[in-house]
Design a protein around this nucleic acid. Structure first.
Lengths: 216, 216
DNA sequence: ACCTGAACACCGTTCAAGT
DNA sequence: ACCTGAACACCGTTCAAGT
């Protein structure tokens, strides 16, 4: 879909100066999602205001309710897009690095890098902002499951190569997921070392997850 | 300190019926912390309202500002208490299980159990509710550092016993911390298996962290 | 010292009404 | 269909005033 410029009555009398656009434009929904993400990246979830989003877009503060049920639904959609982006980056890291042990490490690095590069987005993706446990939102659930599946597939592939022990793939995937998720969260919260040291640590942690912390 | 009942003017005329207590009681600060924690446990951080806390305690909604600078300071104190409790439970798990490899696993289990038993409290302890990065609050920082130190000490101890490889203890501690924190977060968010299966998985993950996921 | 009550500047959401 | 404007029921926080 080509970007649709709003129809302008160019020959309009000056009396219409107050309101340049009436119905904003053709794709308010996408604009709302973009502005939401931009606001979150800049000021965090707690800095997100529906009124502010509307104002930035030159739209009434209730126009949003034509496209999303409420604030939670808006954030849920943003969250789903995050999981799809993450999924794509994980898949790329796996494919672009030979689909072996090195590629698996690259996936882990890519995971943490996504979180560090988009901390607020990542936080929205993982619960804390959403309601306790109501409205699981199937589409979001599916997007998250898709990203997780990339991890499972990579593990199964390595098991076939004989480089990973033949445990239940789901358990191994959860193990690695917990590790990178923990690193990502602590890194975002500033509880690990700063800046580029994060990648060094992530590499160390992934290496330890391969061979363990035991002596010998 | 014995629980102090508010002084009641028992022979008071009926005209005073409207306001039974004037200055509430002797330790409003502690009562505020308790009520805050109870509210959080019951309804999550987003369900916490300063007005509600005051009302539950039969106190004006601004009385709180005599004891805490603002909502963030209140949550920061609650957070610090959480880290001290967690620290105590980790230390107990280490001491009560022989201070060896088994005790180290018990620490990991205890960590995840604390989070699962007090999900809202644990969430408050880890960032998402607080401001982006302003006001580090030294007392909170110290409480968190204390809990982390228990982990470092246990690792150093095992290195002396020759059961853990002689890497930088700080790096190894961060590795384990990331793992249990990731498990805790995913478990709280309902993204891992439910209920008692959490402990089984945690045990599996800790075992993998010891010996690695590599085949052979 | 400690607490109150009114007031201020915000929120998300609803709903009748406009075009 | 899509958007608006006023209104509702909430927030956290400030501040002069009470005891």
């Amino acid at each position: 879909v080509a970007p649709q410029t709003p129809k302008r009555a160019t020959g309009r009398p000056k009396a219409a100066r107050k309101r340049a656009r009436r119905y904003h434009h053709g794709d308010l929904r996408r604009a709302l999602l973009q502005e939401t993400l931009r606001t979150i990246q800049a000021h965090g979830v707690e800095g997100l205001t529906l009124r502010g989003v509307g104002q930035k877009l030159g739209v009434s503060r209730t126009a949003l309710y034509r496209h999303f049920a409420d604030k939670a639904a808006l954030l849920g959609t943003v969250s789903g897009e995050g999981f799809r982006t993450l999924h794509a980056q994980l898949a790329a890291a796996w494919k672009d690095n030979g689909e072996g042990g090195e590629a698996f490490a690259a996936m882990g690095i890519a995971y943490v890098q996504f979180a560090v590069a988009n901390p607020s987005h990542y936080r929205v993706m993982f619960g804390s902002g959403l309601d306790p446990d109501c409205a699981p939102d199937p589409e979001l659930q599916q997007a998250a499951a898709g990203a997780f599946q990339a991890l499972v597939d990579a593990i199964v592939s390595q098991q076939r190569q004989g480089s990973v022990r033949p445990d239940e793939p789901l358990m191994l995937a959860r193990f690695i997921w917990s590790l990178v998720h923990g690193i990502a969260m602590l890194a975002i919260d500033g509880r690990l070392s700063q800046g580029e040291a994060i990648e060094t640590f992530t590499r160390f942690a992934l290496e330890r997850s391969r061979t363990g912390i035991t002596e010998g």
